[in-house]
Nucleic acid binder design. Sequence first.
RNA 1: GUGGCCGUAGCUCAGUUCGGUUAGAGCGCCAGGUUGUGGCCCUGGAGGUCGGGGGUUCAAAUCCCCUCGGUCACCCCA
Length: 429
Amino acid sequence: MVAPEHPFQTLTGMRDLVEPDTGRRRALVATFAERAERAGYGEIRPPLLEELGVFLRMGEATDVVSKEMYEFEDKDGRRVALRPELTAGVVRAFVQHHPPTPWKVWYSGTSFRRERPAAGRYRAFDQVGVEVLGVDDPDLDVEVVALAWGSVTDLGLRRVRLVVNSLGDHEDRQRYTDAVATFLRSRRADLSEAARATTERNPLRVLDTKRPEDRAVVADAPSISDYLSPESAAHLERVLAGLRAVGVPVEQDDRLVRGLDYYRRTTFELVADSLDAAQNAVGGGGRYDGLAEDLGGPPTDGIGFALGVDRLLLACDAEGVFPPADVVLDAFVVDTAGGETARDLVHELREAGLAADRRYGGGSLKSQMKSADRSGARWALLVGSDELDAGVVTVRDLRSGAEQVAVPRADVVADLRRRSSEHREDTGT
RNA sequence: GUGGCCGUAGCUCAGUUCGGUUAGAGCGCCAGGUUGUGGCCCUGGAGGUCGGGGGUUCAAAUCCCCUCGGUCACCCCA
């Protein structure tokens, strides 16, 4: 081994997550999983690495495919890529295993995009989401969108809006895209240079530009609502009516387009008003009715969404909700009489289901008490030479300041269990 | 990928304008004050390649170039 020239550090856009962030993310995923499973969804964990072709259906013109994927040739000479999202992999799994439909799955996991990092945007990022394959019924759209909405409100977020639109079926979308492109070319002189380039590559993307000069032009652009087939329009109406019926506040926005090529008909986005406009989309999704066929399967309707965990938590911070929970310790053992009691007692406490820790390497009573205090433990269990001689352990409440008591060594675990359950009842935890 | 700003102790930052004693503060950490008691207070201590490399200079945290990382806007997207 040769020592590195520079200390190793995380790659650009990647980070080490530690407590309390890790615990907060566990809680977020648990909350999401609970809601999804209540609605009949089962968990799926597709691999992080897939054949490159699985992801190309997102659209060759999208940045995600054209320049942001971590792709390489493996030692077998296959073109492979780290997943930039989970939908394509889930649909690939559907095509590969042909499970009975409807197939309802939820997921949580990390994806990778080689972009310039920004607030709430990393090169390795976590999402939670669901996909449903095999159902063409607008009431399923209602279920999926309501699930996304509920997942956000479960966290306590209030300043989030749900925006819904329809891109129509394949033909609608194509006709509309052509109309938008024609319109934008007619107003070419008024557009920014970047928007002119986007017009030729992916005209719909221009519709949600954030540049003021382009926004003025886009305001005059044709509306998708004039290009929807009667079937697509009816589908959208049924979805909107359904969401209102179940009490999900929804806004319709005929300028909402989503980045990936596979979206058809229903599309939606969750926008956090508490975040800066650049990264305020905390989640989004929609129908992708042709995707399974594109991946070699039978024609199958599909719909799903993904929520960005980093942005959700950013929004939670901005609203002061869903705070990270402290790690709770029941007992901290302080032993200045040789250490055998600490060694044995923490083990007994843990085996009995209590959370217990101690300090290693000895130290004065004072310094061990400082460790006990910092640990956040509810009780300190003290063992000095006096206790050892008397066969007892001194139990000290570190929060109330109440008088400490001597408990026979043999009864300490049972005593702590009793105190702990009483304490939980008191605090309702 | 383009442009702006930033990088000094574990953390948050001062010092950079106009180069010049041993590079500082608060918090945190360790120890003592209290030879068996945490939090508050007092005292002391440890801890720094000034992101890295090169250059200019008698002299660089400070000026110049390159580079790495972060951040904001654009692009794109969760």
